[in-house]
């Protein structure tokens, strides 16, 4: 208030060089910092002093063989399920945008079904598929069979996990891919068609590469999500990371330390995936940012210089505020 009054009192003809820029004060920020500091201290205190966390047990198991095997299987499930999900997602998205009405309906039905039932139910369903179909065979429909196998021996926990996670992911990915395709301006497809490309060439060469910019960030999100959804396969007994940890604590009753072991690994892998996502995004941004980025950078620089308060006479500044 005092500062405000001072400026109104100042005569308009006053010389410019004895004016002082007063940086804005942010008491709210200091309050927030104080609160967070207290909470952080409490958290660290808990982590260090609570003996039930048993950090020695954590370090004992974090690189143990069953846990490392579990990590590898979790990674394997994540990668395979995401590859299946992306492939199905692209196919279903193209299907939904197809001029063929039957295809569009079937694609819609797919994403409705797999998004509409819980992933846990789907995993259990694939695992217990043998209760529905005793045999799976390859042959002519309603005609002779060429090869046949019992579902029980065919559907291992691993295959059930892959089917459950991959088919479910395909439904979510299809929406992401579809939004990416729709984000590419219509003129792009027309330009491709005008030089004589077929619909599929336009899709592959023109639309999808540009749609990737929109598709990649949420796909990174989905991958990180998938990493953790793989832990759901604990219900069908496939020994990935969480299942491996649970098998150990079922034996030793060191529940909390082993859950921390699993959590540490999930966090570490998520960090690596986030870094990978950054580089993939940068790759698909080519052609979109150079000119814009340059001007944005220089504008920032200019802005920063203009906004920096005049350094001289800080004491005067303080006084005029108080």
């Amino acid at each position: 208030m005092a500062g405000h009054a001072a400026t109104t009192e100042a005569p308009a003809a006053e010389r410019d060089d004895d004016l002082v820029v007063v940086p804005a004060r942010h008491p709210g920020r200091w309050l927030a910092v104080a609160c967070i500091a207290v909470l952080a201290a409490m958290a660290v205190h808990l982590l260090v002093t609570n003996s039930r966390l048993q950090w020695s047990v954590v370090w004992q198991y974090v690189f143990s063989k069953p846990i490392l095997t579990g990590v590898l299987r979790t990674l394997e499930l994540t990668v395979i399920a995401m590859v299946i999900g992306v492939v199905i997602g692209i196919l279903v998205a193209i299907g939904r945008l197809s001029p063929n009405p039957v295809l569009a309906k079937v694609a819609w039905l797919y994403s409705w079904f797999f998004r509409g039932t819980p992933l846990l139910v789907q995993l259990l369903f694939w695992f217990y598929l043998s209760a529905l179909l005793t045999h799976v065979s390859i042959g002519i429909p309603f005609g002779p069979e060429f090869a046949s196998a019992s579902t029980n021996s065919l559907i291992t926990p691993f295959l059930a996990a892959i089917l459950g996670l991959g088919l479910n992911e395909g439904a979510y990915m299809s929406e992401i891919v579809r939004s990416g395709i729709l984000a590419v301006p219509r003129g792009q497809a027309e330009a491709g068609q005008a030089i004589g490309m077929t619909r599929s060439e336009v899709m592959r060469r023109v639309v999808l590469p540009q749609a990737m910019r929109v598709i990649i960030p949420p796909t990174g999100n989905e991958t990180i999500g998938m990493l953790k959804y793989t832990s759901l396969v604990i219900v069908i007994g496939y020994a990935e990371l969480l299942t491996s940890a649970s098998l150990i604590y079922a034996r030793t009753f060191q529940t909390i330390p082993l859950l921390i072991v699993a959590a540490l690994w999930y966090l570490a892998i998520t960090a690596v995936l986030s870094i990978a996502q950054y580089y993939v995004e940068r790759h698909f941004d080519r052609g979109f940012q150079p000119a814009a980025a340059k001007s944005r950078g220089s504008r920032l620089l200019r802005g920063e210089r203009a906004l920096r308060p005049a350094p001289e006479q800080p004491t005067v500044a303080m006084r005029s505020v108080s």
């Binding site: 301006p185 003129g187 792009q188 027309e190 330009a191 491709g192 068609q193 005008a194 030089i195 004589g196 490309m197 077929t198 619909r199 060439e201 023109v206 590469p209 540009q210 698909f284 080519r286 052609g287 979109f288």
Partner: peptide, 21 residues
Amino acid sequence: AQRRSRIGMVFQQFNLFPHRT
């Protein structure tokens, strides 16, 4: 597509492929 390949078209909004030089 075959017929179009023998007809050149230039658009009001250029419609160049932004991801290619």
